[in-house]
Measured scan of single mutants.
Amino acid sequence: ATNIVGKVKWYNSTKNFGFIEQDNGGKDVFVHKSAVDAAGLHSLEEGQDVIFDLEEKQGKAYAVNLRIK
């Protein structure tokens, strides 16, 4: 899925991951530091509006192509 809109539920910059809540009511999506770095960001803030693509690997969904809304 592409261009999914959501809000950062939480992001832990020490542990380098967090979760994004989808605006469409879907399951929360894992986001890793690598996606944050690829977006040219240092971190994510709770409540921040983002747009992302959804990829699945080994049955787990995660956010890629992250951008600030």
Rank of each mutant, 00 (worst) to 15 (best):
E46Y: 13
V5R: 12
G25N: 12
A39D: 02
H42D: 12
G25A: 08
V8W: 03
K9I: 08
V5I: 14
D53H: 05
A63C: 04
H42S: 14
D23T: 12
K33A: 13
I68T: 12
L66Q: 00
D49Q: 09
D23W: 07
G26E: 12
D37H: 13
N16T: 08
G25M: 12
N12F: 10
F19D: 00
W10L: 07
A35D: 06
Y11D: 01
N3W: 06
I68S: 13
K27N: 10
G25R: 05
G25E: 09
E56L: 15
H42K: 10
D23Q: 13
G47C: 03
A35I: 08
N12G: 05
F17A: 02
V50E: 00
L41D: 03
N24L: 14
F52N: 00
Q22N: 09
G25S: 13
D23V: 08
V8Y: 01
A1S: 07
K60S: 12
G47K: 10
V31R: 00
I20N: 00
K9P: 00
V64H: 08
G59R: 14
G40K: 10
S13L: 15
D28Q: 15
G59I: 05
K69S: 07
Y62G: 09
F19N: 01
E21S: 15
D49Y: 14
Y62V: 05
E55H: 07
V29Q: 02
G47Y: 07
L44Y: 02
D53Q: 08
W10H: 04
I68R: 09
V36W: 05
T14H: 13
V8R: 00
N24C: 04
I51Y: 07
F30I: 04
K33I: 06
S34K: 14
T2S: 15
S34G: 12
Y62N: 11
H32V: 03
G40F: 08
I51L: 12
L44S: 01
G59W: 06
V36K: 04
F52M: 06
Q58H: 12
L66F: 02
A1Q: 10
T14G: 15
V64Q: 06
S13I: 10
N3V: 05
V8T: 03
H32N: 05
G47W: 06
I20M: 05
A35R: 05
K15E: 07
A35W: 06
F30K: 02
F19Y: 05
I20H: 00
Q48L: 09
V5M: 11
V31F: 07
A38F: 11
K15D: 06
N65R: 12
N12S: 15
D37I: 12
A61G: 07
E45F: 14
E55T: 10
S13A: 11
E21P: 01
G59F: 12
I68V: 09
K60M: 13
S43R: 06
F17Y: 10
N65G: 05
V64E: 06
H42P: 12
L54A: 06
V29S: 05
L41Q: 10
G6I: 01
W10Y: 06
T14A: 15
F17H: 08
I20G: 00
Q48H: 09
L41V: 11
F30S: 02
Q48N: 15
L66R: 00
N16C: 05
A35N: 05
K9F: 02
Y11T: 02
A35G: 04
K15Q: 06
G47P: 02
K9W: 02
D28Y: 06
T2F: 11
D37F: 13
L54H: 07
V64C: 04
V31T: 03
D37K: 12
A63L: 03
N16F: 07
K60A: 14
L41K: 11
Q48R: 06
H42R: 10
N3A: 08
F19L: 05
I20T: 01
L66C: 02
N12W: 10
V31W: 02
V5D: 13
A61D: 13
G47E: 06
T2C: 04
K7T: 14
K69G: 08
D28E: 09
S34E: 08
E21H: 15
K7L: 07
W10C: 04
N12R: 14
G26W: 10
K69I: 06
